[in-house]
Computed example of a mutant assay.
Amino acid sequence: MPSLLRVVSYGRELPDAYLAAVQAAVTGAGGNIVELENAANGRFQVTVLIVEYDGGASDGVTALRAAVDPVLTGELGTAVMDASLAGPDRKLLLMDVDSTLIQQEVIELLADHAGKRDEVAAVTEAAMRGELDFAESLHARVATLKDLPLGVIERVRDALLLTHGAKELVEAFLAAGHAVAVVSGGFSQILDPLAEELNLTYYRANTLGIDADMLTGTVDGDVVDRAAKEASLREWAAAEKIDLAQTIAIGDGANDLDMLAAAGLGVAFNAKPAVREAADAAINIPYLDVARYFAGV
């Protein structure tokens, strides 16, 4: 029995030549296009192909991804997935926070108040590329915040900018009855009010140490690292009785790799090269709500 696959092409603009090349790649890899849908929201364009593949879905996804990879260029992207992800089953969307749900890195905003932004940013970049152990790098970066007044947290919270399309993505999933969660290597004092404002189903982050209205330069409790992010995905999917095949995880750094691998669809968002290579799909434009079209939401 043929498998049904979903092939989603996206970009600020989708040239006819690019779409023709994607379609040729799909058919050349043994896929038969049975449905085509175009969508646009004023910021980017999307074309969705529903494809029959004479074989298993896993083999079809592998074959079609390999076929369209050489076609990709710049901000144009094409993602291939089992069409069942866009079916009626309830889903869990899990996102990283820094440089994914929001445009900034919170640790750098905090470090700016300590006069250590450049130093901390360099360590953050190395950690996100996977060159440093995340927990060790986090402790080192947080140590630079020692003795900052507690009021800095509110100022940083007020400076946060949601990623373009983030609010639309969250609202669309929640309105359709799905669960939406975030897990962050950042800090609960920053994340919790934002998560409550967005009505997120679950959220988890590290906790900054505080003593006498000052930051202690320490992290309370276990660090939310890549293993904790994957564990959160599995925990929340089980709590909502959602099969892992119906989960979508989105992130940008090495700290997200385990949850991207465990999810039904792991999405790299404007990510480091190693993360893009490991993910099932990538978004290369600054609009998070492209992911809606992957899941048919």
Results as ranks from 00 to 15, higher is better:
Lys167Ala: 10
Glu105Asn: 13
Ile190Lys: 08
Val152Ala: 01
Val224Asn: 05
Ala274Met: 14
Ala21Phe: 10
Ala111Leu: 15
Val275Cys: 02
Tyr202Glu: 05
Leu36Met: 15
Ser188Ile: 13
Val223Ser: 12
Val219Thr: 12
Val80Glu: 09
Met128Gly: 04
Ala39Asp: 09
Pro273Lys: 08
Ala231Lys: 13
Asn270Asp: 06
Ser3Gln: 06
Val68Ile: 01
Val120Met: 06
Arg141Thr: 03
Val267Ser: 06
Glu196Lys: 13
Asp211Arg: 14
Val26Tyr: 06
Gly221Tyr: 06
Leu94Tyr: 08
Tyr293Ile: 09
Phe187Gln: 07
Ile190Asn: 09
Val290Cys: 04
Asp54Leu: 14
Arg155Val: 13
Glu171Tyr: 06
Asp243Gly: 06
Ala122His: 05
Leu260Arg: 01
Gly264Asp: 05
Gly56Cys: 11
Leu161Tyr: 03
Ala237Gln: 04
Val219Asp: 07
Ala24Tyr: 07
Ala111Glu: 15
Asp147Ile: 04
Ser58Pro: 00
Val223Gln: 06
Asp118Glu: 14
Ser9Leu: 15
Pro15Asn: 06
Val8Gly: 06
Phe187Gly: 01
Ala121Thr: 11
Asp69Glu: 11
Asn284Leu: 13
Lys116Cys: 09
Leu191Thr: 02
Leu150Asn: 15
Ala135Thr: 10
Val267Cys: 06
Phe187Trp: 10
Leu85Arg: 11
Thr78Ala: 03
Pro149Thr: 10
Trp236Phe: 12
Gln104Val: 07
Thr207Ile: 12
Thr62Gln: 12
Glu240Asn: 07
Glu154Phe: 00
Val120Trp: 05
Arg155Asp: 14
Ala268Gln: 03
Arg141Gly: 00
Arg276Asp: 14
Met1Asp: 04
His113Arg: 11
Arg276Ile: 11
Ala249Pro: 01
Gly165Trp: 02
Val275Gly: 01
Glu230Gly: 08
Ala21Cys: 09
Gly56Val: 05
Ala274Val: 14
Val68Asp: 00
Gly60Ser: 05
Gly151Arg: 14
Thr27Gln: 10
Arg6Glu: 00
Val22Met: 07
Thr100Leu: 05
Asp16His: 12
Val34Leu: 05
Leu265Thr: 14
Asp112Cys: 06
Thr201Gln: 12
Phe294Ile: 02
Leu169Asn: 03
Ala159Ile: 00
Met81Ser: 13
Glu136Asn: 07
Asp158His: 13
Ile242Trp: 04
Ala29Arg: 15
Ala135Asp: 03
Glu105Arg: 12
Leu19Tyr: 07
Ala24Gln: 15
Leu19Trp: 08
Val123Thr: 11
Asp59Lys: 10
Ala86Asn: 02
Gly115Trp: 01
Val22Pro: 02
Tyr287Trp: 14
Leu257Ala: 15
Asn199Leu: 09
Ala181Lys: 02
Thr78Ile: 00
Thr144Phe: 00
Asp158Ser: 15
